[in-house]
Every structure is written in C-alpha cells, then in structure tokens.
Design a protein around this nucleic acid. Structure first.
Lengths: 110, 110
DNA sequence: CTGAATCCAGATGGATACTG
DNA sequence: CAGTATCCATCTGGATTCAG
C-alpha cells in the first residue's frame, strides 16, 4: 500500500508519464522533440520534470557536442521497467474513454 | 499516447490511487475507514477525491440507513479494471524503493 | 458519521524574456 | 538549442468550524 504511493510520488505532476512515453517511444529524444511530443507542456515545465526524472534515475541526460548544443534523453534500465505500467495505463485509458466519455463525444484536445 | 493522459487525468491528485487501493483491498469500505487507511488525508480531500472518482464511475457510493448514517464505497465494475495497474504500480514501487532509496534508508512515513 | 463551508499558505504552472 | 529567471494567476490542500 505504501509502495503504490512510492510509485505515484515518482510519477506525480501533470507531465511525467507523457514525457516518459515520448522518450521510450523513440528510444532517444531531444529536448525540443519532447517539447513537441508532449502536447501543451512549456519548456519551463519540461525542464523541471526532466530534472526530477533524472534525479529519480529514470532518464539519462546526455549533452551532444553539436553546434548548437543538443541534449539527448533516454530511459535508464530502471526507467525501462515502467513500460509495462505505461502500456497498461494506455490500454486502460482507451477503455476508459469508451466507457465514460463515449466514442462519439471526442474530448477537446486543445 | 493521448490515452495515457486520459488515464492519468482520472488518477490525478495526491490520493486517488491510495483511496482505490483501500477500497478494492477490502471490497466495501466506509468513509471513516478510508480516512484511516489513507495515511495523512483530510476529510476534506477524501470527500473531494471520492466525488471525482464517483463522477468517473470508478466507485459507487451507497448511503446506509444506520444511526448515525454511514456511507459505503465500493469499486464499480469499471473501477475493478484498475486492479492490474495498481498491482503493477505496487510491484514497481517496491522495486523502485530498493533501486533508488536503498533498503537501509527507510523513507519517513509522515 | 459524513460531509460542506470558509480561510489561507504554499505549490503549481503559464507567459515572457533572457543567456550561453 | 536547451535551458534559466521572473512575474503572476490559479490550483491544491490543510485546519477548523459547522450541519444533517
């Protein structure tokens, strides 16, 4: 029971899961790529959330020596273990939308 | 990808998962029971979160005709489908604690 | 017992501008 | 490109009190 909370503490915030999804979906992903992937997030938030994920050792940050500099993010081994959960959440999200929202009332995306 | 967000939207907030865990763990649970189960939650928050869960049709609320009145909460069929996710999160939480926190540095519980 | 109402501090997060 | 800094509105959530 406390374990559930531990997990949720790491995945808190509005964007964590979406960010992780973006990264794990492509393997490696740059800051601006994620910024585009995650709908609605600001660079300020992305920066903050990525930092937290890095602290929790879920993502690895690599500065590439390009001109201008680019930064690459990828999941750590530990971050990879979230895949099952993300898959489950995705599946459940689909069912939930059908169940509650109904297929005919599309949610406003933006 | 949007589906993940759908799922997280429903499970947002600090307490949702813990509340669901509490209910599904016992099958049926009264307001004050959940209040005790979920460490640190206030009645104000519990009330709010339960209402949201009810709106999303994850829990069912039943007023029992006792003296004084008691209210019983249980998972709906749809709420039950979260069990897999909760189990996964719990498992992952345990691993995460070992991985990051280390077994010897107990997290302060409150 | 189960909540709703009020009050209020602190966290969250968007917009914008700026730096290396 | 990848952030950081600042400002500021809104949201979150605790404490307390009240009501059916």
């Amino acid at each position: 029971m406390r374990a559930v909370q531990d997990a949720m503490d790491v995945l808190n915030g509005k964007w964590k899961i979406a960010i992780i999804s973006s990264i794990c979906c492509y393997g490696k992903r740059r800051f601006s790529d994620i910024l585009n992937d995650v709908n609605g997030i600001s660079n300020r938030m992305l920066s903050k959330e990525l930092k937290e994920l890095e602290i929790n050792q879920l993502v690895k940050r690599t500065v590439l020596d390009t001109q201008p500099i680019t930064v690459q993010y990828e999941l750590t081994k530990h971050g990879d273990t979230l895949q099952t959960i993300i898959t489950n959440l995705t599946d459940w999200g689909i069912v939930h939308r059908k169940e509650i929202v109904g297929e005919k009332s599309p949610i406003i995306v933006e």
